[in-house]
Structures are given as C-alpha cells and as structure tokens.
C-alpha cells in the first residue's frame, strides 16, 4: 500500500486533487516545492496558514493541507497581515500570481514589505492573467503578445526583485520552476527568516502565455528558462530585469531587520510593563 502512495499524499487536500491546472503548467511544481520545504524543515503543518488570492495559482491554497484561505483578488497579503499579527505563532505563507500581487494587490505588497510583516510571499510569475484567459499584466514583457496586446505590449513591466528589495523585504530571490531544487532551498530559507521575504518563481503557462508567444508546451517554456537563465547571486536587483534573452536568477537580498510583529508586540509588552508599575 504505502508503495503506491506519493510521499506528499498527506500534505495534499485529497478531495480537491487532481488540481485544475493545465498540463505543462508550472503551478504544481511550485506547490510541490513548497510542500517539500515545509516537510524538510519539519514544520508543524497545524501551525501553517497558506493564503492565496485569485487566479490560476490562487487555487494552491485549496490543495495544501494546512489551514488555508482563498481571499478576494489582490487581498492575500492584507489578509495574511491580519492573521500573522493576531496570532504570531502561525507561519503564514502567501502564494499568488503576478496580477494578484502586483496589479490589484500592488499597494498591499509594498506596504507589507515596508512594515516587514513576518510573511513569506511566493509569486508565481507567468507573465499574464492566466485565469481570465491571458491578458497582459504588470510583468508582461515589452512587445509580448497577449489577448489584450494584439499588436504587442507597449507597457514596461515591473522588475519584481527590484520592487521587493526597494520596498524593504529582508529576503528576495528569483528562480524558475526548472530550478526546483534551488527554489525549495530558497523557500526553506524564507520560512526560517524573520520578516518579509519574497520569492519570485518564473513559471510556464503554455496554455495561454506560451500559446500567444510561440512556446506551445511546458517544455518549450522551460527550455526558454534554461537558455535565458543566469544565476547571479547578490547581484544588483536594479539590473535583474527580465528580457527574452536574459532571466537573472539567484538570491538578491538576505538581510536582518526586526519584523513588524517583533516591534509591535515589543511595544505592547512595554505598555504592559508600564501599566504594572502603575505610572500611567
């Protein structure tokens, strides 16, 4: 019996598997990597909350057998902030899309990073709005084709690494789904870090983004990642822009800074102390 069971069987919400993702979609690899990281670190699954917004990747929350919550579009980080501050004992991870985290939810992202809320944010960047059929979004490369850029994209994309670093994240890394080992190591590192960490995962969406951009299969897209990838650990985030020719990968930021929770709960402790002494 046990021979037939996948080692992550008990980490998946079985009644929701198989997942809705297309063949060749990288979202399942991100889920796989996340579960591997939790397992490797021996984290108590009862104390993990997996939060996601809306989009193809948003369904990841349902598949993860931790406590999980699927918010409205864009609000995952804000929701997670409430969870983490209300119960600091929980590990709170946000896994969501480029559109969810950086278009409609962009404001929440930069402010959570600025506050250094103790959250682990993983972005599945497929360069598009997969769920709604492949419109362009904040990470779509210049000139790329999508359903709403029929003449090519004329908007400049975000460099998410630069954005996260500038907003104050204490750990920032970028990998692709092909670099799943390093991705797992990064997620492990992020989960152990105090403060706001951000990992961008470049992931294939052959069904939509690939189809519009001459990469019809998951392997086509993964091979693009392989060809274009350059690992440049601790290189300048400002120079980590993604182009069709070059995808800079690596760890970019790994610093120490007290988390919002630590400062906030520290302040509360001081207030309590003062009240005990009665000199209010």
């Amino acid at each position: 019996m046990s021979e037939e069971l996948h080692p992550f069987e008990t980490f998946l919400r079985k009644e929701m598997i198989p997942h809705i993702w297309c063949d060749g979609c990288g979202n399942g690899i991100i889920l796989n990597s996340y579960l591997m990281a939790l397992k490797d670190l021996n984290i108590d699954f009862n104390k993990v909350v997996t939060v996601a917004g809306i989009g193809c990747i948003g369904r990841v929350s349902g598949y993860t057998k931790t406590d999980s919550y699927h918010t409205t579009h864009g609000r995952a980080v804000a929701f997670a902030t409430g969870v983490k501050l209300a119960n600091p004992e929980l590990k709170v991870a946000v896994i969501s899309g480029d559109g969810d985290l950086f278009a409609i939810g962009g404001n929440h992202f930069i402010h959570a990073a600025r506050r250094n809320v103790n959250l682990q944010v993983i972005c599945a960047n497929n360069f598009t709005y997969g769920m709604t059929g492949g419109q362009y979004g904040p990470t779509t490369p210049l000139d790329a084709w999508t359903s709403t850029t029929p003449y090519g994209n004329v908007e400049h994309p975000f460099n998410l690494i630069h954005l996260a670093a500038a907003s104050g994240a204490v750990y920032v890394a970028r990998w692709t789904t092909l670099h799943v080992r390093r991705l797992t190591e990064s997620i492990k590192k992020a989960l152990q870090k105090e403060g706001f960490s951000f990992i961008e995962v470049i992931t294939p969406c052959p069904e939509i983004y690939g189809r519009y951009n001459k990469m019809r299969t998951g392997i086509d897209m993964m091979n693009w990642f392989r060809k274009a990838s350059e690992i440049r650990n601790y290189s300048d985030p400002a120079k980590a822009e993604i182009t069709p020719e070059r995808i800079v990968l690596g760890e970019f930021v790994d610093i120490e800074k007290p988390s919002f929770g630590r400062l906030l709960h520290g302040m509360t402790a001081k207030v309590q102390e003062k009240m005990k002494r009665g000199n209010r």
Partner: peptide
Amino acid sequence: GFCEAVCPDFAIFTV
C-alpha cells in the same frame, strides 16, 4: 528525485 520534484501533478516518485 528530480522527476518527483518537477512533476506538477504528484504523479511520479521514486524510492
């Protein structure tokens, strides 16, 4: 273990 790690569908594993 790479096949297991890269499978998006939890459909392959090795022992």
